[in-house]
């Protein structure tokens, strides 16, 4: 059985990488209790590329994402990004419960000192992009889990792209870091949101680094799947996907390799 992927063919990408991780190691604790979370990780993501970081628990994929986001510092190695600040999306929507959806999306623009009229207009645009037009005045508790996660996506896009606008280059389209953003959702909602994310990614040209432990999710979404080993986290292998990739075969390949990595810990 063959199943090709739902994405369009990627455009050729030139220029410096949007995100460049060089020889990054991260050690938590010191002495005997020290845990090596990441060990000499190299990863380069081109502007506009969609990369999935895949690994079992404890592989340091969230640690790597935090380092790229600037929420933590590497023990050694360097992390460089072209965009000033990559936006982050977590498993929980983490919306501010006292602000309505529109103001939540506006928040990163407000932090950047952008005026009210402009940021309100941009928030409307982004909410429409995630199919939440007309929901701007709803509070988070009045929205479903999937809708909240879409508000979080719109907010992350606001953080990554600022006021957006036409004629921006790929470098200015921002970097979006996603830490298992659909992990807490039910299967049907997750399926719908994955399709939405692909649509939004194609519409905005944003660079995406997406952390997941779900092989099927990574095959469906990413142009490139990067497998990390656990304790210490190292890049084990990479798979590129393209429109004529056989999804089932790739899924089998990656699952096999992932099982191999996990079983190595039981021995």
């Amino acid at each position: 059985m063959t199943a090709t992927l739902e994405r369009h063919a990627p455009e050729p990408r030139t220029g410096p990488p949007a995100l460049d991780v060089r020889g990054v190691s991260k050690v938590f604790g010191t002495g005997q209790d020290a845990v090596v979370a990441l060990d000499g990780v190299d990863l380069s993501v081109a502007p506009g590329e969609f990369v999935c970081l895949l690994g079992a628990s404890g592989c340091g994929k969230s640690t790597l994402l935090n380092l790229v986001a600037g929420l933590d510092r590497p023990t050694s190695g360097t992390v460089e990004t072209t965009s000033a600040r990559p936006a982050v999306m977590f498993q929980e929507a983490a919306l501010l419960p006292w602000l309505d959806a529109g103001r939540n999306v506006e928040l990163p623009l407000r932090l950047a000192g952008i005026g009210r009229a402009q940021r309100r207009e941009r928030a409307q645009e982004l909410l429409a992009l995630v199919r939440l037009e007309g929901q701007a005045d709803k509070r988070p508790h009045e929205l479903s889990g999937g809708m909240r996660q879409r508000v979080a996506l719109a907010r992350a896009l606001a953080a990554a792209t600022g006021l957006g606008g036409e004629g921006k280059s790929r470098e200015e389209a921002g970097v979006l870091l996603m830490d298992e953003p659909f992990g807490a959702l039910d299967a049907i909602t997750r399926d719908v949101l994955q399709a939405e994310l692909l649509r939004v990614w194609e519409a905005t040209g944003t660079t995406v680094l997406f952390v997941t432990h779900d092989v099927r999710e990574s095959v469906r979404l990413a142009e490139r799947v990067v497998l990390l080993s656990s304790r210490p986290g190292r890049v084990v292998r990479e798979w590129a996907t393209s429109t004529d990739t056989d999804a089932e075969e790739l899924h089998g390949d990656i699952t096999g390799e992932l099982r191999e990595v996990i079983s190595a810990h039981g021995r």
Partner: peptide, 23 residues
């Protein structure tokens, strides 16, 4: 997954979920 991008059907499913899950 063979169809590129979300179809009308997928959009309807999304809208239906929103309507069902909204508290």
């Amino acid at each position: 997954e063979e169809r590129p991008g979300p179809t009308d059907d997928a959009i309807d499913v999304g809208r239906g979920l929103d309507a069902l899950d909204t508290p």
